[in-house]
C-alpha cells in the first residue's frame, strides 16, 4: 500500500498536477499551503474582524455563488432553447412540461436572477455604509459599480428570451426609455433592438448579449474585483480600530 502510494505521489503525472510531495515533512506541508490555488483568492491568514457575519453578511461571495448557479442552470437551459420568434415560446412550454426537472431548472434560473440583482445591490450598499470604498479601494468600487450595471444588463436581456407577453412588453417599455436620451437615444435603441420594434433581430441580439457578452464581462471583471480586494489589503474591516469589536 505504502509503495503504491509512493509510486503514485512521485510519478511525473502526479507531480505535474501538484508541485509538492506527500505532506509528511515540513517542506511539503508548507508547500501544500503556499502552492494551493485557494490562496490565490484568500491570504493564508485573515483577520477575525473581516469574518464577522454582521460586517459583510457574505454578500460579495453570495453574488459570486448565485452567478455560479446561474451559469450552470443557464447552460442547461441552452440545451432546450432556440432564440427564434417562431420557436422560443414553444421550447419554454416543452421545457416546462416534457423535460424532466425542466420547470425546476427554469425556476432556479429565474429566481436566481432576481436574487443576484438583490444581493449585488445589497453588497454595494454594505460597502458604501462601511466606508469600504475609501482609499486605497477607490478603483475597486468603480469596478463594482460596473459589475452592478452588468448584472442589471444580464437580467434585462434574459427577460426577453421566453418570448411571452410579459417579456415582450417589459422589453418594449424598457427600451423605449432609452430613446429619450437626447443625442444618441434613437441610435442606442436601434442598436439594442436591431430594428424599430422588438422582433427577431432584438431576440437574436439579446440572446447573444445574455449568454456570451455580458457573462464574459462579469466573469472577467469579477476576477479583477476579487484580485483587487486582496491587492488593496483585504476587507476594510481589518483597518478598523479594535475598539469597534469590543463594543459588541
Amino acid at each position: 500500500m505504502q509503495r503504491i502510494k509512493d509510486f503514485i505521489v512521485n510519478s511525473r503525472v502526479w507531480r505535474s498536477f501538484f508541485r509538492h510531495g506527500w505532506p509528511d515533512n515540513p517542506l511539503d506541508r508548507s508547500l501544500v499551503m503556499t502552492s494551493n490555488i485557494f490562496f490565490h483568492l484568500h491570504s493564508v491568514k485573515v483577520s477575525r474582524k473581516s469574518l464577522r457575519a454582521t460586517y459583510s453578511f457574505g454578500l460579495g461571495i453570495m453574488s459570486a455563488i448565485v452567478f455560479g448557479v446561474l451559469s450552470i442552470t443557464g447552460i442547461l437551459l441552452m440545451f432546450y432553447y432556440t432564440p427564434t420568434v417562431e420557436r422560443a415560446y414553444s421550447y419554454i412550454i416543452t421545457l416546462q412540461t416534457l423535460v424532466p426537472f425542466g420547470q425546476l431548472l427554469r425556476n432556479l434560473h429565474r429566481w436566481g436572477a432576481h436574487l443576484m440583482v438583490i444581493v449585488v445591490v445589497f453588497h454595494m450598499v454594505r460597502v458604501f455604509y462601511t466606508g469600504a470604498y475609501k482609499p486605497p479601494r477607490e478603483f475597486n468600487w468603480v469596478v463594482g459599480v460596473v459589475l452592478l450595471l452588468l448584472t442589471l444588463g444580464a437580467s434585462f436581456t434574459g427577460y426577453l428570451l421566453p418570448w411571452d407577453q410579459l417579456a415582450y412588453w417589459a422589453i418594449t417599455v424598457g427600451t423605449s426609455v432609452a430613446a429619450y436620451e437626447p443625442m444618441m437615444g434613437s441610435v442606442i435603441k436601434a442598436t439594442l433592438l436591431g430594428g424599430p420594434e422588438v422582433g427577431q433581430e432584438a431576440l437574436t441580439r439579446f440572446y447573444a448579449l445574455h449568454i456570451m457578452v455580458i457573462p464574459a464581462g462579469i466573469a472577467l471583471l469579477t476576477s479583477l474585483h476579487m484580485w483587487r480586494v486582496r491587492k488593496d489589503g483585504g476587507l476594510a474591516a481589518q483597518d478598523a480600530p479594535d475598539a469597534e469589536i469590543v463594543e459588541e
Binding site: Y89, Q103, N107, H109, W111, W163, D164, L166, A167, E197
Partner: peptide
C-alpha cells in the same frame, strides 16, 4: 423554486 413557478404568459403578441 420547488414552491413557486416562474411566470409564463401567452406567446408574445405585438
Amino acid at each position: 423554486s420547488l414552491g413557486v413557478n416562474a411566470p409564463l404568459e401567452e406567446i408574445a403578441n405585438p
